[in-house]
C-alpha cells in the first residue's frame, strides 16, 4: 500500500525538510486535534443548556462513532489491514448490553441477567476480544483482497446469526428498556451520557496514541509498509497483527456498548456490512493513519448525513458520488489535506 517514492535529488529541499523536523514545531494535525477536542468539550453542553437537546444527541452519536472509527484506524490506518467487518463489533457490543437487560426484565438466563453496567462493559469488550481473536486468527492468514472479503463475510455471519435468533427480536431488533446502571452516575441524563462518551473518546485517542508509538506500534506500522522485511528482521508479523486486531475489536465493542445505551434500540441492521463501509469511509475520509483523522471523518459523515438528508431523501446519491470523487481525487484524507495546505509533513 505504501508506494516507494523516488529519492529526491535536490539536497536543498531535504535540508529544508530536516530543518523543519528539527524545529519540533507542532504539526497542524495536532493543533486541529486540540481545537476539535476543545470544541467537543464546550459546544455540546452549551447546546444542551440553550435548549438544543437534539444537537447534544448528534454529538453523542458523533463521539461514539468516533471511538469506533478510531479503533478501526488502529488496524486500517496504522496497520494497513483493511477490515471490512468492524460494524459486527459495534453490534456485538450493543447486544452485550441488550441481551443481559432483556433477561433482567423478561427472566431466563439468570447468570447473565443484569442491568449492571459494570457487567455489560467487560462483557462487550470480552465478547469482542474473543470474536476478534477467532476471526482474526483465520483472516490474518490471508492478505489483501482475501482479507477484505473474509472480514466482510465474518461480519455478515454475525449479522445473520443475530437475525435468526427470535428471542432477541431477530430482524425486528431489541429495545433496551433500561440503560446500564453505573455507580454514582445515571446514563439516563443526556448530558451525563455525553460526558461518558466524550471522556471515553479521549481515553481511546490516548490509548491508540500510546500504542502506535510504542515498540509494538512501530512493528505494526512497519509491517504495513514492508511485511517481508519485518519478518526478515525476526518479527512474527502475524502475532503482532492479531493482537492489534483484538485490541481494535475490543475498543469497537466498547463503543457498541455505548451505542446501545444511547439509542436504547438495537437491531441487526447496525451491523450490516454497509455500516462497516461507512466506518471505513470515516477513517479514510479523515485520514487513515493520523490520530485525530477518524474523528474528523466521523464529523463530516454525520454532518453530510444531517444536512443532506434534510435536503433530499435521496441523500445517498450525492454521498456516493462524493465518495467516488474523494477516492479518485483526494489523497490522505482531510488531515493530510490540511497538513499539505499548511505546508508541513505529517508526523505523529
Amino acid at each position: 500500500m505504501t508506494e516507494q517514492i523516488a529519492p529526491k535529488e535536490q539536497s536543498a529541499q531535504s535540508e529544508a525538510n530536516t530543518a523543519a523536523r528539527r524545529s519540533r514545531r507542532l504539526p497542524p494535525s495536532t493543533l486541529i486535534m486540540a481545537a476539535g477536542l476543545l470544541f467537543l468539550a464546550i459546544v455540546p453542553p452549551l447546546a444542551y443548556f440553550t435548549g438544543n437537546e437534539f444537537w447534544l444527541s448528534i454529538f453523542t452519536r458523533l463521539t461514539i462513532l468516533s471511538i469506533a472509527a478510531v479503533s478501526l484506524n488502529l488496524v486500517l490506518g496504522y496497520g494497513g489491514l483493511v477490515s471490512f467487518g468492524h460494524a459486527a463489533f459495534l453490534g456485538l457490543g450493543a447486544y452485550a448490553v441488550g441481551i443481559p437487560v432483556h433477561h433482567a426484565i423478561n427472566g431466563e438466563f439468570e447468570s447473565i441477567a443484569t442491568t449492571n453496567g459494570l457487567f455489560h462493559i467487560p462483557m462487550a469488550v470480552g465478547v469482542c476480544a474473543l470474536y476478534a481473536l477467532i476471526t482474526g486468527a483465520i483472516s490474518l492468514r490471508t492478505r489483501g483482497v482475501h482479507f477484505i472479503m473474509i472480514t466482510m463475510a465474518f461480519g455478515q455471519m454475525v449479522f445473520f446469526a443475530i437475525v435468526s435468533i427470535e428471542t432477541y427480536g431477530g430482524d425486528d431488533g431489541l429495545t433496551i428498556y433500561e440503560r446500564s446502571s453505573l455507580p454514582a452516575i445515571s446514563l439516563d441524563n443526556p448530558l451525563t451520557l455525553y460526558a461518558v462518551c466524550f471522556v471515553s473518546l479521549l481515553l481511546a485517542l490516548y490509548l491508540v496514541h500510546r500504542i502506535v508509538n510504542s515498540r509494538f506500534g512501530m512493528v505494526i506500522r512497519a509491517a504495513k509498509g514492508n511485511e517481508e522485511r519485518i519478518r526478515a528482521l525476526g518479527f512474527n508479523a502475524y502475532a503482532y497483527r492479531l493482537l492489534a486486531y483484538v485490541i481494535s475489536g475490543s475498543m469497537c465493542g466498547y463503543a457498541g456498548a455505548l451505542l446501545g445505551n444511547f439509542t436504547t434500540f438495537i437491531s441487526p441492521e447496525m451491523m450490516d456490512w454497509t455500516r462497516s463501509g461507512e466506518l471505513m469511509f470515516m477513517v479514510i475520509l479523515g485520514g487513515a493513519g493520523s490520530l485525530f483523522g477518524p474523528v474528523l471523518g466521523a464529523s463530516v459523515f454525520l454532518l453530510l448525513e444531517e444536512v443532506m438528508s434534510d435536503f433530499t431523501i435521496y441523500w445517498h446519491l450525492p454521498f456516493g458520488i462524493m465518495l467516488i470523487l474523494a477516492v479518485l481525487f483526494v489523497r490522505g484524507g482531510i488531515s493530510g489535506f490540511a497538513d499539505r495546505l499548511l505546508g508541513a509533513k505529517r508526523d505523529d
Partner: peptide, 13 residues
C-alpha cells in the same frame, strides 16, 4: 482499498 471504497460509493449511487 481504493477499489473497495469507490465501488462502495457506487452501490449508494
Amino acid at each position: 482499498l481504493d477499489h473497495v471504497l469507490a465501488t462502495f460509493g457506487l452501490i449508494l449511487v
